[in-house]
């Protein structure tokens, strides 16, 4: 609590964090509750997402511990994660996910 942070990872499984203030190129981003610090590779406006790890093209972007989209390009640590490098899910993506539901485990 004493340590000042300027980004929030909404779930431990997330590969992105949300910045709580606008950060500039090279600025240090410290994520709450995490030892993780990353440097912004560009300006990222407050409320927007930064990559915490390398996300290869075609990989899932995870926020809230859930898949919120698919990377359309390689995304480096510290990159701004937004419409230029992420797309939403298609019905096909979702159908695939639906088939993974296993009700017998409940």
């Amino acid at each position: 609590m004493n340590k000042k942070f300027n980004a929030l990872q909404l779930d431990k499984r997330d590969n992105v964090a949300v910045v709580l203030e606008t950060v500039r190129f090279g600025q240090l981003i410290s994520v709450q509750d995490e030892m993780k610090n990353v440097n912004a590779s560009t300006t990222i406006p407050y409320g927007h997402k930064v990559a915490l790890v390398f996300i290869p093209k075609g990989e899932e972007v995870i926020k809230y511990g859930e898949c919120m989209g698919i990377a359309t390009a390689d995304i480096a640590i510290g990159d701004h994660v937004h419409v230029s490098n992420v797309r939403g899910l298609t019905e096909k993506d979702k159908r695939f996910r639906k088939e993974e539901i296993n009700f017998e485990n409940i």
Partner: peptide, 13 residues
Amino acid sequence: KTGGLTTLEEKSL
């Protein structure tokens, strides 16, 4: 989008 939401899934989540 200006506010930082990228996809419909993210908004709904």
